[in-house]
Simulated assay, not measured.
Amino acid sequence: MSQADLAGEGTRPESQSVASSGARAVKGHRRPSGLLRSELLTTFRRSRTIALLGVLAVIPVLVGIAVKIETADGGSAGGGGGGGPAFISQITNNGLFLVFTSLAATLPFFLPMTVGVVAGDSVAGEANAGTLRYLLVAPAGRTRLLLVKYAGTMVFCLAATLVVAVFALATGAVLFPLGEVTLLSGTSVPLSEGLLRALAIAVAVAVSLTGLAALGLFVSTLTDSGIAAMAATVGLLLMVQIVDTIPQLHAVQPYLFPHYWLSFADLLRDPVYWDELVRNFGLQALYTAVFGSAAWARFTGRDITA
């Protein structure tokens, strides 16, 4: 079917606006870089995406203000222990720990929820809007389009994580002192090394979300409803998170994609503890391979009629 044939179907509900946007999409998608650039522009220009990133940006600011108010009379914030949310007890001594606290606070739900929304809408949203087959008119092919959709979601994973980290660092620098970083192993390192470790942790958190992104992409190929795909992805996320907290199911928990998410704390040890980090990365790679292959099998054999 030619571009002219597609553009001529003006009686469809999506009408001229969809045809026009589809034609522009086809024109700009001759090269892989153009297809990815268009996908990123579309994703980050959506008001929904901006709102999600805005919520992520506000969380570390609220955490920092709450800690500042709580410790205004000389008291201490949170508890000790050195893992996960216990980073909060170190914030008053070094604002850099607000980065680690904010990532630990958002990782169980807020960060993965935003990724689930973007991944779930990646293919189903295009089908619902009537633009999916316009994208396939370009000499991109279904495989390349699916890879671009996943790559766009991965970029969003990194962007969302960096938004939390950057706003946490800025808030921590304004409200608390910055200086040498005392690692969980008791070793002190310069602030510059602490910042590098914070960047490494942000990247590790982003990588931790790639398995969920692949799952969301697969769900997105199963339906033409973006809302249904987003709801299903977030629902699966919540279900898996609940299963991961039930002691009686400890035998299956090491195989659940969120199980090792907080292993990023091991990057704050000297030497770094790599065991759980490697397990986490390997598990995300496994989920990416399995659900990425399932998404490819579904999408390449799908009858695109919308």
Results as ranks from 00 to 15, higher is better:
Pro60Phe: 10
Val272Glu: 12
Thr43His: 05
Leu249Ala: 05
Val67Thr: 14
Gly116Met: 03
Glu14Thr: 08
Val174Ser: 14
Ala285His: 04
Val189Leu: 02
Gly292Cys: 09
Thr153Asp: 05
Phe218Lys: 00
Ala104Asp: 06
Gly78Leu: 06
Met230Thr: 10
Gly179Leu: 06
Gly116Val: 06
Glu14Ser: 12
Ile69Phe: 15
Ala159Trp: 04
Glu126Tyr: 13
Lys27Cys: 00
Gly211Ala: 08
Gly292Ser: 06
Ser21Val: 10
Ala140His: 10
Gly186Met: 02
Ala19Thr: 00
Phe257Asn: 05
Leu103Ile: 14
Ala119Cys: 05
Leu196Lys: 11
Leu184Gln: 07
Leu209Pro: 09
Asn128Trp: 12
Ala229Asp: 01
Thr210Ser: 10
Pro13Gln: 03
Gln253Glu: 08
Thr161Lys: 06
Pro247Thr: 08
Ala306Ser: 12
Asp5Ser: 13
Leu40Trp: 10
Leu267Asn: 05
Thr101His: 12
Ile242Lys: 08
Pro60Arg: 10
Phe218Cys: 05
Ser33Asp: 01
Gly22Glu: 03
Ala231Arg: 01
Leu145Tyr: 13
Thr49Arg: 00
Asp266Lys: 09
Arg48Ile: 13
Leu262Phe: 15
Ala294Val: 04
Thr187Trp: 00
Glu9Pro: 02
Ala57Gly: 12
Leu237Ala: 10
Ser263Tyr: 11
Leu236Thr: 00
Phe110Thr: 10
Glu276Arg: 11
Met1Lys: 07
Ile59Ser: 05
Ser102His: 06
Gly8Ala: 15
Ala86Gly: 01
Thr43Ala: 03
Gly292Ile: 10
Val163His: 01
Leu107His: 06
Leu52Phe: 10
Ser102Gly: 13
Phe100Thr: 15
Gly120Leu: 11
Leu98Asp: 09
Leu195Ala: 07
Val58Cys: 13
Phe109Trp: 08
Ser33Leu: 15
Asp244Trp: 01
Ser76Asp: 14
Thr71Pro: 10
Ala129Trp: 03
Ala160Asn: 05
Leu146Asn: 04
Ser17Phe: 07
Val272Arg: 03
Tyr260Thr: 01
Asn280Phe: 14
Phe291Asp: 00
Tyr150Ala: 14
Ala204Ser: 14
Gly130Met: 00
Asn94Gly: 09
Phe100Trp: 13
Gly82Ala: 14
Ile246Asp: 05
Glu70Ser: 15
Gly152Leu: 04
Thr92Leu: 06
Tyr287Glu: 06
Ala124Gln: 12
Arg24Asn: 00
Tyr255Asn: 00
Leu199Lys: 04
Thr101Ser: 14
Val166Asn: 03
Gly130Asn: 02
Ile242Gly: 03
Thr143Leu: 11
Thr11Met: 13
Ser76Phe: 12
Val166Glu: 09
Ala66Gly: 14
Leu249Val: 07
Ser89Phe: 08
Arg142Thr: 03
Ala198Gly: 12
His259Gly: 03
Gly282Lys: 03
Arg30Val: 14
Ala295Tyr: 02
Ile59Val: 15
Asp73Pro: 00
Pro32Arg: 02
Asp303Pro: 04
Leu103Glu: 11
Gly81Gln: 00
Tyr273His: 11
Gly10His: 14
Ala295Ile: 07
Ala151Arg: 04
Ala214Pro: 01
Ala173Leu: 07
Leu237Cys: 07
Ala170Ser: 12
Ala66Met: 10
Phe44Gln: 02
Gln16Met: 14
Ala151Val: 09
Leu62Lys: 00
Ala57Arg: 10
Phe44His: 11
